[in-house]
């Protein structure tokens, strides 16, 4: 089991963000979390990252509890948020080298890093440009390159295609699909029903901190998914 949430509860004061969430993602699966704003998707991702402590329950990565092994569990994962934030004064390859080194990867050969950036879809002429001049799509690609270079076993994506143009979004989805095919477990929080149906193996719909519906992506059509989602969003 690559990712596992067991009875995960998170309170922010009186506000309950998660109410006993349970989910499992195996290697080679993409679990898409759908839900309105405030449903608890980002909180779930943050709990797996160890940036938040659960009120109760547990989050495990590769069988290890995130709270008990905060550094070790991070070695397995890569994280791509809605906006991949990089150092604007460093070039794409310098940013990649930096994050890969922090993650403890031994292979930091410049040629390999360049190949990784090219594989992630970054234009060759942009590789040695400072990131301050990059578009959002290019930054997301560096984010994917970081995940590839780190050989992450788990990918946590928090609305990664939000704000990308359709072409960039499609390219991004293709990269995630290829990582899935290589055996990476992916947990993706998103609002994009189309993409979740396309690249997801499993889909979960969250509402007010609870998983209200969970099914395999192959079981539903795009139209069915939209119907199920809207039904669940009704009060």
């Amino acid at each position: 089991m690559s990712l596992e949430a067991k009875d995960l509860v998170k309170h922010y004061g009186n506000n309950i963000a998660l109410r006993g969430l349970n989910l499992r993602v195996n290697a080679g699966e993409v679990f898409c979390l759908l839900g309105a704003n405030g449903a608890g998707k980002t909180t779930t991702i943050q709990l797996f990252l160890g940036f938040l402590d659960p009120t109760s329950g547990s989050a495990k990565i590769m069988g290890k509890d995130v709270q008990e092994h905060p550094l070790e569990t991070k070695r397995f994962l890569a994280y791509i948020p809605e906006n991949v934030m990089l150092y604007p004064n460093l070039t794409g390859s310098e940013n990649l080298e930096y994050f890969v080194t922090l993650a403890g990867c031994s292979d930091r050969d410049p040629a390999t890093l360049t190949q990784t950036l090219l594989r992630a879809g970054l234009p060759e002429d942009a590789i040695h440009q400072q990131v301050g001049a990059y578009s959002k799509g290019m930054r997301q690609k560096v984010g994917i390159a970081i995940a590839i270079a780190r050989q992450a076993k788990v990918l946590l994506l928090d609305e990664p295609t939000s704000g990308l143009d359709p072409k960039a979004s499609n390219e991004f989805s293709e990269l995630v699909s290829s990582l899935r095919d290589e055996g990476v477990a992916v947990l993706m929080a998103t609002h994009d029903l189309f993409r979740s149906r396309e690249i997801g193996t499993h889909i979960g719909i969250m509402k007010r901190g609870q998983m209200v519906s969970q099914f395999q992506a192959s079981e539903v059509s795009h139209t069915d998914l939209e119907k199920i989602y809207l039904e669940n969003m009704r009060d």
């Binding site: 990252l49 940036f51 905060p70 550094l71 070790e72 569990t73 991070k74 070695r75 994962l77 890569a78 994280y79 948020p81 906006n83 991949v84 934030m85 990089l86 150092y87 604007p88 994050f99 922090l102 993650a103 403890g104 780190r150 946590l156």
Partner: peptide, 14 residues
């Protein structure tokens, strides 16, 4: 503020 801290800490660095 620019969000790189999350990115950095997600690498598992102490």
């Amino acid at each position: 503020e620019r969000g790189t801290l999350k990115q950095v800490l997600s690498t598992g660095i102490d």
